[in-house]
Design a protein around this nucleic acid. Sequence first.
DNA 1: TATGAATGAGCATTCATTCAT
DNA 2: CATGAATGAATGCTCATTCAT
Lengths: 238, 238, 238, 238
Amino acid sequence: MTRLSRRAQNRIERENRFLDAALKVFSRTGYTAANMDDIATEAGLSKPTLYQYFGSKSDLFTAMMLRARGAMMIQFDTGDAEGMVPVLHQFAWNYAHTVLSPAFLSLARLIIGEVQRFPEIGRAYQAAGPDRLLQGIMDYLTAQRAAGRLAFDDPELAAEDLWGLILSAPRTRALHNPQATATDADLKRYIDNGLRVFLRAYSTQPARDLAQLESLLKPEPQAKPDTAAQATSETGTT
Amino acid sequence: MTRLSRRAQNRIERENRFLDAALKVFSRTGYTAANMDDIATEAGLSKPTLYQYFGSKSDLFTAMMLRARGAMMIQFDTGDAEGMVPVLHQFAWNYAHTVLSPAFLSLARLIIGEVQRFPEIGRAYQAAGPDRLLQGIMDYLTAQRAAGRLAFDDPELAAEDLWGLILSAPRTRALHNPQATATDADLKRYIDNGLRVFLRAYSTQPARDLAQLESLLKPEPQAKPDTAAQATSETGTT
Amino acid sequence: MTRLSRRAQNRIERENRFLDAALKVFSRTGYTAANMDDIATEAGLSKPTLYQYFGSKSDLFTAMMLRARGAMMIQFDTGDAEGMVPVLHQFAWNYAHTVLSPAFLSLARLIIGEVQRFPEIGRAYQAAGPDRLLQGIMDYLTAQRAAGRLAFDDPELAAEDLWGLILSAPRTRALHNPQATATDADLKRYIDNGLRVFLRAYSTQPARDLAQLESLLKPEPQAKPDTAAQATSETGTT
Amino acid sequence: MTRLSRRAQNRIERENRFLDAALKVFSRTGYTAANMDDIATEAGLSKPTLYQYFGSKSDLFTAMMLRARGAMMIQFDTGDAEGMVPVLHQFAWNYAHTVLSPAFLSLARLIIGEVQRFPEIGRAYQAAGPDRLLQGIMDYLTAQRAAGRLAFDDPELAAEDLWGLILSAPRTRALHNPQATATDADLKRYIDNGLRVFLRAYSTQPARDLAQLESLLKPEPQAKPDTAAQATSETGTT
DNA sequence: TATGAATGAGCATTCATTCAT
DNA sequence: CATGAATGAATGCTCATTCAT
């Protein structure tokens, strides 16, 4: 068993090295311009070995994307926050940091740019990423509605409004401009505003919730160090 | 004069044929996978002629993008609508139809996918498209605030909220899924909700404005035939 | 007649402009790498006109070479020198300056480099240049033999020895090194030595002739400014 | 060891096949007109393999020239001849056969024709070929001077005179005329004359040395079969 | 007659993929 | 199992040559 499991482990490790390399190289140049030599070199292994693990370029791409999905499966994660307003606030920061990280943005650009060539990947990403998160948000918002704290008819729309209010603008901007990384100050501006608007429109007790929000916002730019970069690091802009 | 102008006209016509072909082919496959032979063939002219007009592949790409910017320069256009609520409603439909048209989406995907290779194009597009539109919205919203109909501090955030509430979700979805075109019913759902939330959060007289909105929404799916597709049509999904 | 001759003159002038341009461009890059666009541009006329004058690239090359032959038809020219030793001395300088001029060397390189492609041109050049000159030298040396001043059996070999002694070394070197132009000091070294050796081996009165030669050599480097560059100037190394 | 050395040997063998092919093709047509397909085909391997060995056309050219230099490094080789006159005689034949071989001439034409494009190659050739040989001749002549058999001031000029007298004329002619190969009878004429003139001008005992030379020359055209053609044969005129 | 404009054919170079070892 | 070595098929770009005006 030891020998075999060692082999298996070895295999998995090599596979991961290839997938890491593929993520890096594909993110940098896109599917067509990426070349198998570079990926093999980046992985520190040989090209025929690469072909033994993944039968073709497009198989490799697909496999890499499949694995990347894991890193993109954002949860409606709110840490240890308690109370609706703190929870939403926490969520906003977690989410913003993740989605606006260079690695995450590169991957998003890659998916969008190649979606015509690999339509399933676009769909898979939509399902694993945004849609799953959306479900998480919906569940939470629905619970808050049940508790009488929010009012809305369509939970999906409410959830989409929440993230649209927070991230639509900075994300669109970031997709178009790889150089400019959003600072925490930028994020704060978007997040604070987004939450305010959301509460104003959806809270059953806007005055109270907004007051609570303001008190939360007093302290400085939220030293959230790097909840982000959970996605496979190294995918940077280079 | 006749001869010269004929030549000049001929030149312009050919140039446009090349640019059309380039838009089509680049949109279909991305920059690297697109090949100059295909573009020339698509244009019905020869490759050397293509090179005489545009010295290199990247020059052609840049020129094509430059021209495409024209088609993307969305205005805050509201037709003949009168009154704030009808104006916003009209804008929402115009804007949605344009931005979600297949041609527009293909181009957006192309830009996002190649922005690492051509950073200036991303910036140029951001400036000519979203930023310009944003300015239009801001101006309008600011005027409404002056007239006492809206309340907000930061006009930019308000403007971004307006379009984020209306288009963030369907556009993101569409970017990830070239096959699924949003139906007018889909749009209606997003637009109606977006406007409601916006008014609830920003109007100084939410009750009255929302009532006016509801009366506007009664009639069926807005037979807005095709204000859209103003962008170079035919760029579709293929 | 005036009009016609004007036309004819115009034609000749254009033809010459093309031939000048061709010489320049072909000399710079060789036959294959030279391109008809550059030649037309250099001539300040259009490519179709070029084709009207010379039906093809190789025709142009041949015509250019034919004309260049004129410039290469070196004579056994000795100016106003009198007496055998001064005549030979004068000839040596004239000849050296001509043959080692950049234009002349470029042309020689071109001929040698393309002789496999255009064998007739090599032969034509040999006949018009070296062979003709050789005949001139032979005639002179034979006359001197008749006058009892030189002794030899084979006039051709004697003539070849004369120019071999003077120019073989610097010309070979120059053919291999386009950058290094021989200075007059270099030439003086070769010429003085060559004449000495020639007289020692061929003169019937070596002592007297060598003494006369030495007295001729006293004065400084022979301020022969530029008897050279008779070949179409401008053919330089660029 | 076996496997590795086999690979290495294989590599070297293929490299040589490419270099042989390159020499052949470049010599035939010059640098620009030669095409990588032909060279690969001539080598019996594929174009990508050629590119794996030599990264570019100009690298291949340079490498080929570098290797060719080996074949051009003529020594002042005099076989087993003894005594100054036989040594010079022997040298003359060796040298003439080598330098006038078709392969050697083709290469010389190639170098001269491409020297403007590859100046270092011209210089390298001059250094490795003519200059090295010259040094050999100089050393020998200087030794003979020390032994009292020759008289001269400048050994370089003496050495240059020796080879200029022997080879200048036939080599120049051969460079201009690829078809006409010099026969041994031609060479004999040049060599005999060159040596006579050299001895007449440089020997301290011309009468005795010339007599010795004449006795050497009696026998027929020197059946020196082919000391020449040491250079990569097959480079012929085609 | 002179030219702007067009093109078929070619060429250096690259790359996904496959063997032989 | 891993790899050095090999290749068929493109692809961007150029050039001699020809028309239509």
